[in-house]
């Protein structure tokens, strides 16, 4: 089993077998990141390819100060956002801030798998989904999201609030969801 450190060093030297191993080891994780932002599977795979190329181009600059996975994940997120920007996606949808309410989610939803959660999240409108992913999954602050997406902090907050609201509604009223969604969620 090649250690992560050795794998990075070999990739920095341009050893092809190690580059293949890196793709094999991490592309699944990176594809998950890309799928959360992309509109569809095809776009997610394109973004993944670009992210991997970017990783190989810049792996020489990686220093062991942080997690290698986090570094790659960051690149994948940025590439995804660039793709969304390229496809004329605009984040500037102002909305009033909606405070979180004490919402109780049925325990059954804790049984949801990652794929089911992703299906659920991907049903969110693109802007909501992006902000929700950045804030909840990646752990960015609203300021950081604002800078990443070139929107104000308030816009980021309101987008997140709306995303939560939509998700809550979907979870509360699964009947309103399509048959397929319900089947997946209740599986």
């Amino acid at each position: 089993m090649v250690t992560e450190k050795k794998l990075i060093q070999d990739c920095q030297k341009g050893i092809k077998s190690s580059q293949y191993l890196l793709v094999k080891r991490y592309s699944g994780m990176l594809l998950t990141v890309c799928r959360r932002y992309a509109r569809d599977e095809s776009m997610a795979k394109d973004v993944l390819q670009e992210s991997l190329i970017r990783i190989f181009q810049n792996i020489g600059k990686y220093q062991e100060r942080g997690s290698f996975e986090a570094w790659m994940r960051q690149i994948a997120v940025r590439r995804s956002l660039q793709w969304l920007e390229k496809s004329s996606f605009k984040y500037e949808i102002h909305a009033e801030e909606m405070p979180d309410k004490e919402v109780t989610i049925p325990e059954i939803y804790t049984q949801l798998g990652a794929e089911e959660i992703m299906v659920l999240i991907n049903k969110l409108p693109s802007g909501f989904r992006t902000v929700f992913n950045l804030y909840v999954v990646e752990g960015f602050s609203h300021k950081e999201i604002g800078n990443l997406l070139d929107i104000t902090e308030n816009t980021s907050r309101s987008q997140l609030a709306r995303a939560r609201k939509v998700l809550q509604q979907k979870l509360k009223n699964p009947k309103k969801n399509s048959r397929h969604e319900v089947a997946i969620i209740r599986k």
């Binding site: 699944g28 004490e102 109780t104 325990e107 992703m118 999954v137 809550q168």
Partner: peptide, 20 residues
């Protein structure tokens, strides 16, 4: 389950998930 816990649950599951 409270909403913040649900979000943590989402984060945990998606962070460790690997797509095929």
């Amino acid at each position: 389950m409270k909403w913040p816990l649900f979000e943590n649950n989402i984060k945990e599951k998606l962070s460790n998930h690997s797509s095929e």
